[in-house]
Computed example of a mutant assay.
Amino acid sequence: MTELSDLKIRWSTLLLLVCFKTARVLSMEAWAITDWGEATATFYRGQDASGTMGGACGYGNLYSTGYGVHSTALSNALLNNGFTCGACFALECRLDGSKWCYPGKEIVVTATNACPPGSEGGWCDPPKLHFDLSYPMFSQLAQPVAGVIPVKYKRVPCKKRGGVRFTIHGNPWFDYVLVYNVGGMGAVCGVAIKGDRTGWHYMSQNWGQYWSASPYLVGQALSFQVRLCKVNTKEFYNVAPRNWGFGQTFEADNNFY
């Protein structure tokens, strides 16, 4: 074989490997990639991240639920109809796209809200991939005089303190549960609930990370089964005692790691 032919084969092999890797990344959902993808970012006003409180994931006061300023709203191409709530993303400002970027800076944020179409000057319109960061997190990536910056992003595991938490709302005939402080891949795609005298009752996503079902469970110790999106399922037994009440929050002894 000639040296020229050998060189052509090597280049062809390299090209195939590059194309395979690119196709693998592009074939994944935008909200699921664990290799770097490209998006844009803006920020909420409010240096205390007050503009990010409440929101489409249902976490309410982000300080009391443990997310604090390390938060972001997502365009729906990334939020995935609420099923990406609780997921964690690493972001870097793309130096080749903005003079306002700080070099070598990386942040990790949790998805806690939606960035709806028509907001942020149209940057959140479908099918755009966009992060609307809290002001403190944006200012770690770039000078906040920049209205919008190009970023690269990827999904990363969430590191949480303590166990998965469950806040129980509703009434005796309607269980309405917020699931949060979830570690591992963070985003919850399925929940089931059981009393100590029943089997498992699968819950429906009501909105964000609120899940609902209608078994009568008053006076029973409660256990939960939580399924992370495309990953694993874990059972959390006897999280709430038999004398639990609506409006109370209970923390499991363990988490996803």
Results as ranks from 00 to 15, higher is better:
Met1Ala: 14
Asp6Pro: 00
Asp6Tyr: 03
Lys8Gly: 02
Arg10Ile: 10
Ser12Gln: 09
Thr13Val: 01
Val18Met: 15
Ala23Pro: 00
Met28Ala: 14
Ala30Ile: 06
Trp31Gln: 04
Ala32Cys: 07
Glu38Gln: 10
Ala41Cys: 05
Thr42Trp: 01
Phe43Thr: 00
Gln47Met: 11
Asp48Lys: 12
Ala49Thr: 07
Tyr59Leu: 07
Tyr59Gln: 03
Tyr59Asp: 06
Ser64Lys: 15
Gly68Asp: 15
Ser71Tyr: 01
Thr72Asp: 01
Leu74Met: 11
Ser75Asn: 07
Asn76Ala: 05
Asn76Leu: 02
Asn76Trp: 06
Ala77Gln: 14
Leu78Glu: 08
Leu78Cys: 09
Phe83Tyr: 14
Thr84Phe: 02
Glu92Tyr: 02
Glu92Pro: 00
Gly97Pro: 03
Trp100Leu: 07
Tyr102Phe: 15
Glu106Met: 14
Val108Asp: 07
Val108Glu: 12
Thr110Phe: 05
Thr112Pro: 01
Thr112Tyr: 07
Glu120Met: 06
Asp125His: 11
Lys128Met: 05
Leu129Phe: 01
Leu129Val: 04
His130Phe: 02
Phe131Asp: 12
Asp132Tyr: 00
Leu141Ser: 01
Pro144Leu: 00
Val145Ala: 14
Ala146Met: 09
Val148Asn: 14
Pro150Ala: 08
Lys152Asp: 06
Lys154Cys: 09
Val156Leu: 03
Pro157Thr: 10
Val164Gln: 10
Thr167Ala: 04
Ile168Phe: 11
Val179Asp: 09
Gly184Asn: 11
Val188Phe: 07
Ala192Pro: 01
Ile193Ala: 09
Thr198Cys: 03
Gly199Ile: 10
Gly199Cys: 12
Gly199Pro: 10
Tyr202Val: 14
Met203Ala: 11
Met203Asp: 03
Ser204Val: 11
Gln209Phe: 00
Tyr210Gly: 09
Trp211Thr: 09
Trp211Ile: 10
Ser212Trp: 04
Ser212Thr: 14
Leu217Tyr: 01
Val218Ala: 07
Gly219Ala: 07
Leu222His: 00
Leu222Ala: 04
Phe224Asn: 09
Gln225Cys: 05
Gln225Gly: 13
Val226Cys: 05
Lys230Cys: 04
Val231Ser: 12
Thr233Gln: 15
Tyr237Gln: 13
Trp244Leu: 13
Trp244Gln: 09
Trp244Asn: 09
Gly247Glu: 10
Glu251Asn: 02
Ala252Lys: 05
Asn254Thr: 13
